[in-house]
Amino acid sequence: MSRENVLVSAQWAEDNLDAPGVVFVEVDEDTSAYETGHIPGAVKIDWKNELQDPVRRDFVDRAGFEKLLSAKGVANDDLVILYGGNNNWFAAYAYWYFKLYGHDSVKLLDGGRKKWELDGRPLSQDVVKRDETNFSAQEQNLKLRAFRDEVVDAINTKNLVDVRSPDEFSGKLLAPAHLPQESAQRPGHVPSAINVPWAKAANEDGTFKSDDELREIYKEAGIDESKATIAYCRIGERSSHTWFALHELLGYEDVKNYDGSWTEYGSLVGVPVETGTGKE
């Protein structure tokens, strides 16, 4: 997998703002940043209100995804460039949705909103309205998505990569440090998981580290490249970032994101849980 196929630089993005067939989409959970200024021409997707099922604990189904992207003016032959705040967490999550629903022509803006802002590149408050399309999605590609029973079965057999911070992994914290501490019923991690915080894959400015650096980080952490891998975090967005690094950048073949993540696993009755650093 070549990185040019899955990532674009901020400079490429600025040079292609008006390119035909290229649609910029800002994805965030809190879309207030978009309102104060977005990449010129970009439409927004609200992760919480538009990508989650309003009733069931799941994300939008195929028909819902088709309806959403049609309304946003994204066509099947468009190249979609995703970016967002929080070091592209929700943009990476959305990228995973696009792949899950079979839209392959999608790339991430390397560094997301952070890099764009730190570079002092232009932001616009103009209202963006694209003509409605008739977007069609495929059935979910479940080769990319792990469910809870599969995670339990993966203990001691597959690579389980917990991408939360060391304190969340050990059970000291239940949520990232910028949030009030609330989440799953029990702290800790899935037994046999290794802890490689998502941020290890990113530079300070939000861009991804080089392939060589990434390969070294995961190798050193103990990933067995001959085995299948499941990544998880708390709600599945940070692990989308790591899924992107492992599957899209490094080209590991069998990598799934467990979107239920610790919020689900840490509330299950009867499953094994480990606390501490996980190291002997």
């Binding site: 730190l118 911070s165 060391p166 440090a177 915080p197 941020a199």
Partner: peptide, 16 residues
């Protein structure tokens, strides 16, 4: 972009 690093210098969280 405000980043919180732990005692080992490892990234823990970030806010704006």
């Amino acid at each position: 972009f405000v980043r919180l690093l732990d005692g080992n210098g490892d990234f823990t969280g970030e806010v704006v």
